[in-house]
Structures are given as C-alpha cells and as structure tokens.
Amino acid sequence: MDSHASLHEIAKFLRRLQWTAIALGALWLLWLLTPVLTPFVLAAMLGWLGDPLVDRLERNGRSRNTAVILVFSAMTLVVVLVLVLLVPLIQRQIATLVASLPSYRDWLLQVAIPWVEARTRMEISNWLDFNHLIELVRSNWERAGGVATTLLGYVSRSGFAILGLFANIALLPVLTFFFLRDWDLLVARVGALVPRDHLETVTRLARESSGVLGAFLRGQFLVMVILGVMYGLGLWGVGLDLGILIGIIAGLLTFVPYLGPASGIILGCIAALVQYGDWEHIIGVLVVFGIGQVIESYWLTPKLVGDRIGLHPAAVIFAVLAGGQLFGFLGMLLALPVAAVVNVLLRYAEQRYTRSKLYAGEQPPMVMIDTSLTTQVPEPVEREPK
C-alpha cells in the first residue's frame, strides 16, 4: 500500500509539473505574439461587451445576423461620431500646444528652474545649457557606439510598426464583427472542453467573472467619458487654452486610481502658471478637479461602477503597471480583466480553504446550543387501566 501511495503521489506531482510547464509556455508564447494579438484581444472585448445586446435583440424575435448587424452598426456609428467630434478638437488643441511651447520653455528656464535652484542649491541650469549638452554628447559619442546605425534601425522598425498599426486598425472592425456573430458558438465550444465533473463550478465562476468584469468596464467607461467632459469644460471655463486637452487626458487616466486627477491637477496648474502666472487661475483649476472628485466619489463611481471589481486601488495600479511592463499595451489592456478574474478565483479559493480540514482541523466543530430556546417536554402521565 505504501508503494502504491508513493507512486500515486509521484504521478500527481508530475501532472502538476506538466501543467505548470504548459502554463509557462503559454505565457512565453503570449509575450512573443503581443503585437499580433492586440487587435484580436480588442475585438474579443468589443464582441463580449456587445453580445448581451445581440442576445436581447434575438430574444425579441430578430435573427442572429440581423442583431449582429444592428449592434455592429451602432458601435461603428458611435466610433465615427467620436472621431468626427474629437479629432478636429484635439488637433486644434495640439496646434495650440505647439504654438505655446516657447512660452513653456521660457517659463521653465526663467521661473521654474531658478525657483528650484534657490531652494535646493542645485545647479540645474548647467545641465540644460545647449553648449553643455553638445559637449556632453561629443564626449560620450564613442561610448554610444554607432548612434547613426541605431537611429536608422529605429526609423526602419518604426516604419514597419506604423504599417502594422494601420493593419491592426483595418483588422479591428472585421474581427469585431466575427466575434459578435460567433460569440455564443465560441463559448459553447470552450464549455464543451470543460471536464464534466467541474462543469457546474466552472460555469458559476465564468458567469461571476463575466458579470463583475462587464459591469466594471461599462461603468468605468461612462465615468471616464463624463469626467473627461466635465474636466475639459471646467478648465475651458477657467480660461486655459489647453483646458480641453488636459481634461481629456485626465478623464482617460481615471481608470488608474488617483492618476487621472493628479495628472490633471499638475498639468492644469502648469498651464495656468504659464498662461496667467497668478493664483486665481490655479485656484480655479483646483476647484474644477475638487468638484469633479466629489461628483465621482459620491455619485458617479457608486452609481455606475460600485465595488464590482472588488480590487484595492493599489492592486489596480500594480496590475496596470505590471501588465504594461510584461506585455506592453496588450498587458495594460488585459490588466484589469485578468485582475478581476483572478479576484473571483481567489474568493472561490478562500471559500474552499475555509471549508477544508486544513482550516477547521481534525476535531469536529463545536455547536453552541442556546438553552433559552429549548422547550420543556412534559413528562408522560401514567393512566390507570380501565
């Protein structure tokens, strides 16, 4: 029996080692195919987000193809409207930024750096001197080792990257349409591969993960849009020439806790100092973001997002940064979905652990009986025989 048990444990360990090797190989392959997988992941997310609306239209009597065409057309119309409205606006804001660059440079050299030097006693201006920079580059030219060759290689790679970007943009609507049309088939095919003994558990975890993630992404997207509009209009009302651009940036960064308002406040204060140089407009910037944070904290996030992802803000920041470090843009795109699914699995693992013998121990749990709730049973009365 001992020999049989030892062989069973060895086989179990080898199976676990095999699955670990498969998981590591899949992660390595994902890392290699990151540039190729980005449009597929984006299209899959759009298909997953649009599938509930397609199913609702099907339940109302429309065919799958008709429902997919209607949802895909609506999604395309929204994207086109956003591009038509935002692209010219952002283009004008960028042109304003380019025209204002000399003012920002003068403010940096004449105001910001002298202020920092006076309080830190560091000679920062020497490092920004043009002649000093030329001499520094010249002294380290040989150490750089073929800067021209490296630059040409980068330009060449950038050209291929631009072509790849246009190819991914062209593929995105096509892939989104196919994911919308075949989403239920893909789910059914994946479900058919799940072992039958674990089908109920896997189905429950998949539904919980999908519900948590879908609610979070839809709610967070609405929060980003609303805050971007609020910040942009508020800073524009304060009088900042770059207010709309700063508001859009702050709104887009809202999905990372504290990063959106922090970046907006810093950029808005710098823009106010360069453009006006007084405290009134800085206070205006702070008031705009203060009102935005109050609305987000007490109305937008509780109503639209809530605690549906169940992650601490520090965990969200770590997930986004870790995903970007490991897999670039694809990693940042998948960071929150993967973190939400992992959180659901961790809750399930916690439930299994608290019900296991490892947590409860070998002794049976003690049952406390409330004697005040017990009823007195009357003793039987002996009757005389008739």
Rank of each mutant, 00 (worst) to 15 (best):
48 W>F: 07
87 V>H: 00
65 N>Y: 14
82 V>T: 12
73 S>Y: 01
69 I>Y: 02
72 F>S: 09
48 W>M: 11
49 L>M: 14
39 P>C: 05
49 L>G: 03
85 L>G: 10
51 D>P: 02
48 W>Q: 12
46 L>E: 05
86 L>A: 09
44 A>H: 08
73 S>L: 13
50 G>E: 07
54 V>D: 01
64 R>P: 15
57 L>V: 06
78 V>L: 15
74 A>P: 14
84 V>E: 07
73 S>H: 03
89 L>R: 11
40 F>S: 12
84 V>R: 01
58 E>Y: 01
56 R>W: 02
46 L>K: 02
44 A>L: 14
49 L>D: 04
80 V>I: 12
72 F>I: 08
61 G>I: 12
63 S>M: 09
90 I>P: 01
71 V>G: 02
45 M>P: 04
59 R>W: 00
64 R>I: 08
83 L>G: 09
50 G>H: 06
43 A>S: 12
61 G>A: 11
44 A>V: 07
76 T>L: 13
56 R>C: 03
78 V>R: 15
50 G>A: 14
78 V>K: 10
75 M>L: 10
74 A>K: 02
39 P>N: 06
86 L>W: 03
62 R>K: 11
91 Q>I: 00
45 M>F: 07
87 V>G: 02
52 P>V: 09
86 L>K: 05
87 V>P: 04
68 V>G: 08
57 L>K: 05
86 L>D: 09
67 A>Q: 13
52 P>W: 05
74 A>F: 03
74 A>S: 14
62 R>M: 11
46 L>D: 02
46 L>H: 08
45 M>W: 00
70 L>W: 03
77 L>Y: 01
76 T>K: 05
38 T>A: 13
53 L>P: 02
60 N>F: 11
64 R>L: 12
64 R>W: 04
75 M>H: 00
66 T>C: 11
56 R>H: 08
70 L>M: 11
58 E>Q: 00
50 G>I: 05
54 V>K: 01
41 V>L: 07
85 L>K: 10
65 N>L: 15
62 R>E: 15
73 S>V: 07
87 V>K: 00
39 P>V: 06
68 V>I: 05
55 D>S: 01
87 V>L: 06
75 M>W: 00
90 I>A: 11
39 P>R: 00
51 D>R: 03
68 V>K: 01
54 V>N: 01
40 F>C: 09
66 T>Y: 07
39 P>L: 07
90 I>N: 13
58 E>F: 00
56 R>Y: 06
78 V>I: 15
54 V>W: 00
77 L>F: 04
43 A>Q: 08
48 W>G: 11
63 S>N: 08
44 A>Q: 12
51 D>F: 02
50 G>V: 02
68 V>Q: 06
78 V>S: 12
80 V>D: 10
52 P>D: 06
81 L>Q: 15
79 V>S: 13
78 V>M: 15
41 V>R: 04
54 V>L: 02
79 V>M: 11
83 L>N: 13
53 L>M: 09
64 R>M: 13
39 P>M: 04
64 R>T: 10
65 N>I: 14
90 I>W: 05
76 T>W: 01
70 L>N: 02
47 G>K: 02
82 V>L: 14
68 V>E: 08
47 G>W: 04
89 L>K: 08
60 N>T: 12
59 R>L: 13
56 R>D: 10
87 V>Q: 03
